[in-house]
């Protein structure tokens, strides 16, 4: 409650920077995931015929399976991208904030 450590961290210029940058990425990626997934579910519910269509004449791959596989792979790559950004750039910023929070009177 009202810990000066938190107050100093909040006042660090890096804090605003971290929150803004990570927040942007979080919301962007989350919206991509939500739109793609619920788009897929609604497609399956309203146009089931499209899910069963072959991606090309004579192909055994259908749209439903192709999109499903795409979701597995693409979402995992988005996750890998987020982890890479967070574990490098954002954690570096975070280290600066932690440092700023220790600065000042003997905490």
């Amino acid at each position: 409650m009202g810990d000066p450590v938190f107050e100093r961290a909040r006042r660090s210029p890096h804090f605003a920077q971290l929150v803004a940058a990570r927040g942007r990425l979080t919301w962007l990626l989350s919206i991509v995931v939500l739109v793609l997934f619920y788009g897929f579910v609604l497609l399956a519910a309203f146009f089931p015929g499209v899910i069963g269509m072959r991606v090309a004449e004579g192909s055994t791959l259908t749209i439903g399976v192709a999109v499903g596989l795409f979701i597995f792979v693409f979402f995992w790559l988005l996750m890998a991208f987020y982890v890479w950004r967070a574990n490098t750039a954002y954690d570096a910023l975070n280290a600066k904030i932690v440092n700023d929070s220790k600065f000042g009177t003997g905490a």
Partner: peptide, 16 residues
């Protein structure tokens, strides 16, 4: 397959 996709998509949100 679609059911499994639905079972999977919670994870990206948990991470982000």
């Amino acid at each position: 397959y679609i059911y499994m996709v639905a079972f999977f998509v919670g994870w990206p949100l948990i991470l982000f």
